[in-house]
Write a protein that binds this DNA or RNA. Structure first.
Lengths: 335, 335
DNA sequence: CTGAAAGCGCTAACAT
DNA sequence: ATGTTAGCGCTTTCAG
């Protein structure tokens, strides 16, 4: 670990000049600069970012908190944010809240000591409170809204997407359409639920409490909810299911399989969020696809913009979703 | 950002004592300590880790470099390492090399300035050279070996796993067994290849060059290799395929599907590394499962141990693999 | 047990 | 254009 002082000495300049030569080339005579650069090269000098950040109060570090790194959605977000941060010369701390407000809080506490310049967070239900831990930090909320006043968010059109999904099922002739929704205290789940209700409402179908089951976003939750919904006799159970996220869709489809219901003959399924699994399972699953990578990319771009003091053009950015019709949806069974 | 000075003032002690009260409780009178703790609490004090690290030369920061964050294998590793690091109070920088030595090098250069205490890396083929950038850093190589002398590695028994896979196919009666191997300059691929060869050899079957195709670890590579291997007429093409990693297995199975080969009737497939996809696709895929989470966990534990100056008990740790027989393997087609 | 003082490596004022 | 000085926030000698 040779420091700047060593470089300065070798180049026969003061440390200040060495620093300038490396970070503010235009402030230094070309000849001097070259001498410093060469010395740095020769010694394999790497600036100590800690010292630098301490002095400049600028860590060039961003942080991302996702809710479940094992979910391909989160992994894609992580890659997108990482790529984007990298391009602008920022480092990224990655945290995983596992949907637990408490882990999220601990992540933010840790973060605080590292003076990140900005934060992208997929908020848990506790985020509104947790984010008070970092009051002066530029934050972008991704995929969900915590409900904090004045927050900047980057999300998809959940309501519209859900509406599309249910509309598709209605068009096929379904009238008993169930939904496996996420936790209602998460904006994404709530909005998808509203889209579901709206589509039913417009079609003049009554809302049936018994057809809507909550889940906690994991595969197992989807399996349990679907099992309950589908264990009822034909003629009573739903003929179609709209499932609120990718993981629960897997669970729901596996449950249907286990109950020996064939897709789409006995049951149609539409999932929210595309995945390789949905594309390649048999039958392939009709989904509402989200532009996941772009979501992460945009969030990071917005954050960097925000950090530079420019308020984003809009507080809430919505990206559109796309209905991808595959093999898991068809007309309801003849009764 | 109220600093330690503010806390000290409020508690009516010197900054030095405040620091001790918070980090070396035993060196301070109980009464004083309580006063400081209270002051810290009241001001919402968070130590500036940058300053702390600069002074103590201990950043409590680890770094993990994976090769493809979108691969569930990497995501599981990331979660495991994150969890383990968290438990011992370490922060984690996560990087993604995308299998590119150049990205790996950039990650390490960046890292260097942040003075991480240790590094876990899934090495790219350039790692041996790249790791010279951080000569004094404790490093654990995970899943693969870079070939650096004296390196510590945590891996699975690739050779044994591959042997198991091929042995299983041999036991079913297959004699034309193909392999889609990864890049041979990656130890994991090489070892799995050796296991394949060994099994064939022991069974007295000749090695057939034409049955072994390389791939670059991605789904698309698996698809292409399998397409080439399986486009030959029945009676010539292999009746079974051993595929070197999870992503390529997906590609291979999709290729077989596209060629209208039924599994396991026309073709048996064994993949390396289990996944949800393998478990739930139809037919489900026989695999060699790895203890992925434990791999990450163990690597992190070893690293922390290594950082504390204790040399791990062994330079190379191998975890065992397990053959999980599912529906994609059966006897070869009657000729 | 506590305080004063020095300094981690760097950069920003301020001089020259 | 360059050097000198001071200090980011913290911890750690070294005294007392």
């Amino acid at each position: 670990m040779s420091g700047l002082a060593a470089v300065a000495k070798l180049a026969q300049v003061s440390p200040a000049t060495a620093s300038r030569a490396l970070h503010r080339p235009e402030m230094v005579a070309r000849e001097t600069r070259e001498r410093v650069e060469q010395a740095a090269e020769q010694l394999g000098y790497r600036p100590n970012q800690l010292a630098r950040s301490l002095r400049t109060r600028d860590s060039r570090t961003l942080a991302l908190v996702v809710t479940d790194i094992l979910n391909p959605f989160s992994a894609t977000i992580a890659k997108a944010v990482q790529d984007t941060a990298d391009q602008s010369g920022h480092n990224l701390f990655l945290f995983n809240s596992d949907e637990e407000p408490d882990k999220e809080r601990r992540a933010l506490e840790t973060l605080r000591g590292h003076l990140p310049q900005g934060l992208i967070v997929v908020p848990t239900p506790g985020a509104r409170e947790n984010l008070e831990l970092v009051p002066d930090l530029p934050v972008i909320e991704l995929d969900r809204a915590s409900g904090r006043p004045g927050a900047y968010t980057v999300m998809v059109d959940n309501r519209g997407g859900a509406y599309q999904a249910v509309r598709h099922l209605l068009d096929l002739g379904h009238t008993r359409i169930g939904m496996i929704v996420g936790r209602r205290n998460i904006s994404t789940a709530q909005e998808r639920y509203e889209g579901y209700c709206q589509a039913l409402d417009e079609a003049g179908l009554p809302y049936q409490e018994a057809l809507v089951l909550p889940g906690n976003h994991r595969e197992e939750d989807g399996r349990q909810a679907a099992t309950q919904l589908l264990s009822q006799p034909a003629g009573v159970r739903p003929t179609a299911l709209f499932v609120g996220n990718n993981e629960m869709t897997v669970g729901a489809v596996l449950a249907a399989r286990q109950l020996q219901l064939s897709l789409p003959g006995d049951l149609s399924v539409v999932g929210f969020d595309d995945s390789r699994w949905a594309r390649t399972t048999t039958p392939s699953i009709t989904v509402i696809a989200q532009p996941t990578y772009q979501l992460g990319q945009l969030a990071c771009q917005r954050l960097i913009q925000l950090m530079s003091g420019v308020a984003p053009p809009e507080a809430h950015t919505r990206l559109p979703t796309t209905l991808i019709v595959r093999e898991s949806t068809g007309p309801p069974p003849a009764r």
